[in-house]
Write a protein that binds this DNA or RNA. Structure first.
Lengths: 138, 138
DNA sequence: GCTTGCTCCTACAGTAACTGGAGGTTGTAT
DNA sequence: ATACAACCTCCAGTTACTGTAGGAGCAAGC
């Protein structure tokens, strides 16, 4: 171990697969602390920042919204707390994902039905259009 | 049949289950034509507008993005065209929904695995946190 | 005729989570 | 000395609306 050196924002971006603008956005949003600056105003990072950003990215990859990430970060900082709260956040998120999958599946079924009804004629007797324009023939 | 009367924007909203602001937004976006106005500047609608808006809402309910709705509206107006183009738009949309379902399902699997690893201890040995903070222990 | 209350108007800010670009400075390598 | 990359700040744009502020019109009741 290792060069616990100063990293530029570009280094941090490369290490974590994050865009530079996104890092600035996270700072602005309070997910990352205000970075220290060099005399000329450039941001300087350390390994702790890399870890924090990696945590954020990993959480985002699992689909947690930023608000949830914020809570997770707070909880993760307090090593002696029970991890109940963390578990709860994750379960709420899981339920949300399940809801989205259910919604999309229902949509998929319906859309598939609509497409199946297409007889490949003209628009005049297109069943898709009819489905979209409920009782346009009154 | 019927009072093919003048409708206010509120009437139209009620008939189609759309918010008044949303109707104005659709007009602004070019999905609905610029409405005629009364002397005092209020929008006036007819049955044709109800049908067009119902078409838009139905398309939205099937998850079509506004750009697709715009295309569908154009195509629907030309009754003699083959409905091939319509079918194509719908299939592209279906493919997009399938992609989203696949993404969410993969996410769900991963998140479920992470949650399952929680041993309900303290944050210090919380497996969820460990998953989120990859190799924080160097 | 007047007031009350509902509906309408325009215009703009906010949502989620970034992304990209303009316009300008700094650091580094040749 | 001069490129050129990388940095800086600020701001607009993305999707599809939703909500609010501030003001005007309209219909009904008294």
């Amino acid at each position: 171990m290792a060069e616990a050196a100063h990293l530029t924002i570009g280094d941090l971006a490369r290490q974590t697969g994050t865009k530079v603008n996104t890092i600035r956005f996270y700072e602005e949003s309070g997910l990352l602390p205000q970075a220290e600056r060099t005399a000329s105003g450039r941001r300087v990072y350390r390994d702790a920042d890399t870890r924090r950003l990696a945590f954020i990215r990993q959480s985002r990859n699992l689909g947690f919204p930023l608000d949830a990430v914020r809570e997770l970060l707070t909880l993760a900082d307090d090593a002696n707390q029970p991890c109940e709260a963390i578990d709860r956040i994750a379960r709420v998120h899981l339920a949300e994902i399940d809801r989205k999958i259910a919604d999309l599946s229902a949509l998929r079924t319906e859309l598939d039905r609509v497409i199946g009804s297409c007889s490949h004629g003209t628009v005049a007797d297109c069943k898709i259009i009819e489905t979209l324009a409920p009782r346009a023939h009154e």
